[in-house]
């Protein structure tokens, strides 16, 4: 008979897998996190919150709710807003009731599409007041500050490039006002009562 001491099983790593699991946090660490590395690890191990990125500025909370509720019951969604305009700037936090739901979301929702964009989720140590605002110089997310590609769902050109573009084409633009119809089609998702946020909406959230 195989003796119980034939091999010390405790030498083996129980968490070792061939296929990496998708419900692990990435290596990102919020540089504004106030706390020790140990505290970070504790927060992450029981976190019920996800950071969600690469959203279109036009994606509504209701759309997010529909997708993210597929992983578990949602406590709240906190839209990421531009510090300056207080309009959505392409990210949000989703808070579930349980840590398991956050993990399920990493497994099944991360990397699927919403509004034709691949959404990225990551375990987050937890929302703190102030984190709902973009950290870029122009108020939005840093990634949109220097972006060189045109991205219709995220306000067109990156902020810096848009500014340059603006200055360069200032004279040419006169008289072409009526031709900018691009965001009309996107915003046509709004019902007659126009409840979803639009870019000019200043009081998106009261807090």
């Amino acid at each position: 008979m195989v003796s119980a001491t034939a091999f010390d099983n405790s030498l083996l790593d129980d968490n070792f897998t061939i296929v990496p699991r998708l419900d692990r946090p990435s290596t990102y660490k919020d540089h504004q996190y106030q706390g020790t590395t140990e505290q970070w690890n504790v927060d992450m191990a029981k976190s019920t919150t996800l950071y969600v990125g690469n959203l279109s500025f036009y994606t509504t909370e209701e759309q997010l709710y529909e997708v993210f509720s597929k992983a578990g019951e949602i406590k709240r969604i906190i839209m990421g807003l531009s510090r300056q305009t207080k309009t959505p700037c392409g990210f949000c936090f989703v808070e579930y009731y349980t840590h398991d739901s956050a993990l399920e979301c990493m497994k099944y929702v991360n990397g699927t599409k919403l509004d034709d964009r691949i959404i990225r989720t990551d375990i987050d140590p937890g929302f703190r007041e102030g984190r709902q605002f973009g950290r870029g110089r122009s108020g939005g997310q840093v990634r949109d500050e220097y972006r060189q590609e045109y991205d219709e769902g995220r306000g067109g050109w990156g902020y810096m490039r848009a500014k340059q573009q603006d200055e360069r084409g200032h004279n040419q633009d006169d008289g072409y006002d009526s031709m900018s119809g691009a965001d009309k089609t996107i915003n046509s998702r709004l019902g007659s009562s126009a409840r979803a946020p639009s870019l000019g909406d200043g009081d998106y959230r009261d807090d």
Binding site: D13, T17, T37, V142, E145
Partner: peptide
Amino acid sequence: RKPYERPARGGRGGARGGSVG
């Protein structure tokens, strides 16, 4: 580097399983 990239930090302890010692 992109402007918002930060130097890589060490791994976060036990947060991730699967490394052989």
